[in-house]
């Protein structure tokens, strides 16, 4: 239905120039669209391209509008609605600091193991865990770590890519 609210993931290829990200983000706030997450980094040095991955929610009409509005931004080269395009994979990166002693410290390691999180820093009182995965998985991990002494979270938004051989831009 046109009025159903869904989350869509867009990949947006933009010229890597100053001010472009501000224009992309500004469009969302000016038009009242909700950004769930947004990540950006340069992905092609030769062609001077950055890739923005943005997750948004809205009705079908709003999602279509967002795509059209993104395409209107002059330095935007390509916009792909991955959710409409086909199967894609997405990942977020999470860093979690847990401060605990004794049994809770051991338990946090056990949980991390189940989630295949890596320990990337440790002191006698703390661990920093690194975990990548879908937003759901990361949320679940955070929830389990909370009672075990979680003191700090840092995470990225999603990055995403289509499954299969198709590439967004021809090389």
């Amino acid at each position: 239905m046109l009025t159903d609210i869904n989350t869509h993931t867009f990949s947006v290829i933009v010229d890597n120039k100053s001010g472009v990200l501000a224009r992309v983000v500004g469009m969302f706030s000016a038009r009242g669209y909700n950004i769930e997450s947004l990540t950006v980094a340069e992905v092609d040095e030769d062609r001077n391209l950055s890739r923005v991955t943005v997750m948004v929610t809205g009705t079908t009409m709003v999602i279509e509008q967002i795509k059209a509005q993104l395409e209107r931004i002059v330095p935007v080269r390509k916009v792909v609605d991955l959710t409409n395009e086909g199967a894609f994979v997405n990942r977020e990166l999470l860093l979690v600091k847990v401060k605990a002693k004794g049994e809770r410290r051991v338990e946090s390691l056990r949980v991390a193991d189940i989630f295949r999180a890596r320990v990337i820093d440790s002191s006698s009182q703390s661990f920093v865990f690194e975990l990548t995965g879908s937003a759901d998985k990361l949320d679940a991990f955070i929830k389990l770590m909370q009672p075990l002494g979680l003191v700090e979270v840092s995470r990225t938004g999603a990055v995403a890519i289509l499954r299969g051989e198709k590439a967004l831009l021809a090389k």
């Binding site: 279509e64 059209a68 209107r72």
Partner: peptide, 11 residues
Amino acid sequence: IDPSSINKNVK
């Protein structure tokens, strides 16, 4: 000429 004008207010 502007694709964003399509279906913006009226389907």
